[in-house]
Simulated assay, not measured.
Amino acid sequence: MLLIIFNCIFCLAFLAFAYVNLDDVDAALWVTIYMVAAICCGLFVFGLYYPWVYLVAIAFYLVYAVILFFSKDGVRDWVVKYNRPSIVETMQAEKPYIEKTREFFGLLIVAAALAIDYFAL
């Protein structure tokens, strides 16, 4: 029952994340990323579970997160070069590292939610 509640919450959250990314420059990528996660969580609520989809999605999210971590003005630069300033003060990504750092953590959240489902069954 707890997994059903968890998946309902994350399905709605990922739908909201997809919605707020509709006006982004790379909307096709991020709406797809969040919609895949929302669909997986939504299907899980109805007892439909496709392990290979979870594995492919988790692998993609983690590989992309590693790319964002090491890219120029990515998470590593945010920590080392910029000394971890706040990335949540404003919704506008005014500094070069803000967008990639936020995307990195979004990918970790999505991968973690799907990994919980994958390993719970």
Rank of each mutant, 00 (worst) to 15 (best):
L62S: 03
I9D: 00
K72C: 07
A112Y: 08
L22T: 14
L107Q: 00
F105Y: 13
K81W: 11
A38Q: 07
A93T: 10
L48T: 09
V36S: 14
G47N: 04
L3P: 06
V63F: 01
Y64N: 10
L108T: 03
A120D: 08
A111F: 01
V53E: 00
F70I: 13
L3S: 04
F104S: 02
L68V: 10
Y19G: 06
A65Q: 09
I58C: 00
R102I: 02
F10Y: 11
F60N: 09
I67V: 09
N83Q: 15
I67D: 11
L22F: 11
I67L: 11
D77E: 12
F104W: 04
P51G: 02
K100H: 14
F119K: 07
V25K: 14
L114V: 04
L107R: 04
L68Y: 02
D24R: 14
F14K: 00
D23T: 14
L3Y: 02
I67R: 02
W52V: 08
Y49K: 02
L114C: 05
F17A: 01
E94A: 15
D77S: 06
V31S: 11
L108Y: 00
A37C: 10
G106F: 12
I98S: 07
F6V: 06
Q92A: 15
F104Q: 02
A65T: 02
K95H: 09
I87R: 09
F17P: 02
L2P: 07
A18K: 03
A59I: 14
F119A: 08
A59V: 13
N83S: 15
Y50Q: 08
F14S: 04
K72N: 03
V25Q: 12
N83F: 14
Y118S: 06
L43D: 12
F60M: 10
Y64L: 01
A37F: 03
A111R: 01
V80W: 13
N83D: 15
A120F: 15
L3R: 04
Y19H: 10
A65C: 05
K81L: 14
P85Y: 09
W52R: 05
F14L: 05
R76L: 11
I87F: 08
P51F: 00
F105T: 05
E99F: 12
D24W: 11
L22V: 15
A113G: 09
I4Y: 10
T32E: 05
A113H: 06
K81R: 13
G74H: 00
L108E: 00
M91Y: 12
Y19W: 10
Y19F: 10
K95P: 02
